[in-house]
Nucleic acid binder design. Sequence first.
DNA 1: TTCACTGCAAAACGTTTGCAAACAG
DNA 2: CTGTTTGCAAACGTTTTGCAGTGAA
Lengths: 139, 139
Amino acid sequence: MEDNPSDSAAIEALTPQRRVVLEVIRSSMGHLTANEIFEEARRRLSTISYATVYNSLRHLKQAGLVGELNFGNAASRYDRDTARHDHAICTKCGTLVDLYIPATIDLMRAAAEQADFEAESIHLTLTGVCSGCRLVVSD
Amino acid sequence: MEDNPSDSAAIEALTPQRRVVLEVIRSSMGHLTANEIFEEARRRLSTISYATVYNSLRHLKQAGLVGELNFGNAASRYDRDTARHDHAICTKCGTLVDLYIPATIDLMRAAAEQADFEAESIHLTLTGVCSGCRLVVSD
DNA sequence: TTCACTGCAAAACGTTTGCAAACAG
DNA sequence: CTGTTTGCAAACGTTTTGCAGTGAA
């Protein structure tokens, strides 16, 4: 979760725009959308454009410095945590929660064998109702 | 996988357009996109419109007659199999394979507890390289 | 007559691209 | 100089919507 020291060199090589985008993602607790990242990035670097945010996100993702998450047809969300982990998503409010289920990786072999795939990664998504939404009276 | 007899009443109540959309999905072996469904539906019912295909898909999904799958920012794919199951997706060619990993459901309790969610469903996605793409010389 | 559904066109949404200008090595 | 990156605007692919017209109950 904390910055990986081996990233330092890669981070120093970033353009100011890309560094700002990365810092926005790293400084947020949640999983921001490109639009949210753009808004916050613009506060820190007023000249940055929408296209550059998208270009930066693509570059950072490719460089392994951020992860991208897709659920449904909504906007992608970007994850500061690039290590393999799982997610839970609330069907009421859309809240996205990080999940660390070590047993997920155990299913990779069986899944790869069944699919006849050379496995690269595996991801578990729990859908349900978050604690906040369970407290709401009106279902 | 075969038609559930309890669906018969629901299917008879469908409009011709919705029935065609459902039949296109049920008669395909794969996981079609809305556009592919539209093209095939139009062959069977030449007056059907794009909007009606989308409206039908929303209705059929809500009625539990088809499932919707999202991977990346690509177009949604529609699944004739509405029972819980998992998927593998090839990072080279995008091929989508159905996976039946019973152990996935065993992770639901642990995941729900960790997230403090009331669990509804769980889905496992394997990413990797399919058998066809492994045979290709040029990596 | 009512109400849901259709078909069309247009809009909305998230994302990508073409391009000229700015920049770094 | 060369190659990369930026910012802008315009385009793109997917999905939804407004609305008038249709059709069934």
